[in-house]
Design a protein around this nucleic acid. Structure first.
Lengths: 328, 328
DNA sequence: TTATGAACTGAAAAGGTTTTCAGTTTTCTG
DNA sequence: CAGAAAACTGAAAACCTTTTCAGTTCATAA
């Protein structure tokens, strides 16, 4: 049998209530506090968090629902979220959805059952669209992706702007035939597509977009096709880090080099983008900031539930590297 | 007020006990079961996991304690652990220790308070050394790193063998002056050091080992020093992926290329190791296997607590790439 | 000194489940 | 068809805390 608060109370010659108060740093006479503390030490007492949560109705738990923790963007995000959580003395339950809506709803249900304090969530477009139909009894902050307008707190990159930046960068460097390879599951990919399309039109160029599941395996296949065409484009844009990776792998297979054979640019400043070849031009996202902002929004929402939903939009930063150098 | 099992019971005209039995798939008359199930649907009832855990004394939670989820090795490991956990209907609480012993003990305490079913844990050498002094009331499976011999279940790579493989590979390719850059916090780095040292001696070569905190930032600094020496080695071995990355960054800074300027090999077959330059030779670890094995060991330990501790040792696989090609 | 209020403490209830135990119904056996 | 066994159900206890409420002690002010 493990030692409970009663045992400590007996050992210290006080009531369980007093032990509880010592634990919670409530007001207790110094002498009793002393006795309780040594009793805790002696008995090796460890509070039972399930019991505490049940009685206090505070789970001190936040849920983090992301497509796949192996995507470095979400890895870094999760680390930022966890650091902030543990500072606030909260636990994090991590869920990987694999961009699968049925897993999403299952995890949202789980969050309900855990009675989480709040959730940070990167939804697929499919689930995001129904987000106002669902009714959670915990606050949700969307991250990296947005839901129906004006309904939820969210933290996103200025994706249209970022994609447009990429296009105008390529345009300025002299590229004219610029294709894009975009994910098909997230609002983010959509926004980047819009930014790309508009910017292309503004430059008087014809946009050409390809769509693919946002993972390297699917991207390799798509990239192979694009890169093998005899009318292959002068430049290729990837809508996220995983797709960019797929393209890089396909290029290695086909022994194509950037920018000599084709220019290449994308999103997410992963380590390898600076190391490979002579560097790949990317939009760097302030990933840790995104995580911290999301936690801040979440805490503020918990504090002030009736506050109007807020959208935090952060800017990406263009990291120019050699993959978009003007070809000789 | 949220709806509880009592409300469902009232709605279905049965006792709370019966609702509980329906939930747990115990034996209940079909007709009642039917009524309960519709009552659950109608009321939108979601069980309270804290209450369930408190009463049933099963947390269905496993703890995963790793140095840093951003290390791709642990990212992949965690994904494998979580997949296995959710299949077994368990939650995962993830903890990052940053190789910091005081964070380790704090998280182990937390695991105690969560009354976790078990823990999967990659300890620092410092904490590992005291591991038999600590007494947990949950099973622990060590992963990637080992503790005092014969005390705990663990899943590790055959690190000495793997390091030796790297040395003999380099030797076979004609390299003779081979230095190593090793982490200083884990048993794993120590084992790789031993393997390196022995293999070097066996080849009649003089080992030369450098030590560094196992992160890219520290490794860059150390690598700069080594690579700038006028008597710099013919080949350099990194004891893990983060250190290898640091070396790669330093080489890029100094405009050194492998294998032309110096041969390079290391551990962890991260994506970028195949993409950078003409590829870096590495030992690939069966990371997902390690995670799954750890979960298997954990479940078996829970099943049969008195079983003697077991060590699962997996083999690494040499991925030969151009960074260790014989220099002209 | 006494009244007043503040500070502190303990008994008991409450939080939402599962589980035990005893009782009731149903099924089976002869 | 009687009796025994099996299957099922409900009342109440239990899990371990926190919190409320009332009571006690202590200090302060009049």
């Amino acid at each position: 049998m493990s030692v409970g608060i009663k045992d400590v109370a007996v050992a210290a010659g006080v009531s369980p209530a007093t032990v509880s108060r010592v634990l919670a740093n409530h007001t207790v006479k110094p002498e009793l506090r002393e006795r309780v503390e040594t009793a805790i030490r002696l008995t090796g007492y460890r509070p039972n968090l399930s019991a505490r949560r049940l009685r206090s109705q505070h789970s001190n738990t936040i849920g983090l629902i992301v497509p796949d923790i192996r995507n470095p963007f979400f890895t870094t995000l999760s680390r930022a979220v966890e650091d902030a959580a543990y500072l606030a003395n909260m636990r994090v339950v991590l869920c990987n959805t694999d961009e699968n809506p049925s897993r999403e709803t299952m995890y949202l249900r789980l969050m309900q059952e855990e009675r989480v304090t709040g959730v940070i969530y990167a939804p697929t477009r499919e689930t995001a669209a129904q987000l106002d139909r669902l009714n959670f009894d915990f606050p949700v902050v969307l991250v990296d992706r947005h839901g129906p307008p004006g309904r939820h707190d969210s933290v996103v990159l200025d994706n249209r702007q970022a994609a447009a930046t990429l296009v105008s960068h390529l345009y300025a460097r002299g590229f004219r035939v610029i294709e894009g390879l975009f994910g098909n599951t997230s609002s983010t990919a959509r926004d980047r597509l819009s930014g790309y399309t508009e910017a292309m039109n503004d430059c008087g160029l014809t946009p050409r977009a390809n769509f693919v599941a946002p993972n390297p395996e699917a991207a390799v296949v798509a990239a192979r096709e694009i890169l093998s065409r005899k009318d292959k484009p002068e430049a290729l844009i990837a809508s996220n880090g995983l797709i960019l990776l797929g393209i890089a792998q396909a290029m290695q297979e086909l022994e194509l080099r950037a920018p000599q054979d084709i220019a290449l640019a994308g999103f997410d400043n992963e380590i390898w983008t600076g190391l490979i070849g002579s560097g790949i031009t990317v939009i760097q996202q302030p990933v840790a900031d995104i995580g911290h902002s999301a936690m801040r929004l979440l805490f503020e929402r918990i504090e002030t539930p009736e506050m109007a939903p807020r959208v935090v939009m952060l800017s990406g930063k263009l990291i120019e590297r050699n993959s978009t150098k003007r070809s000789a």
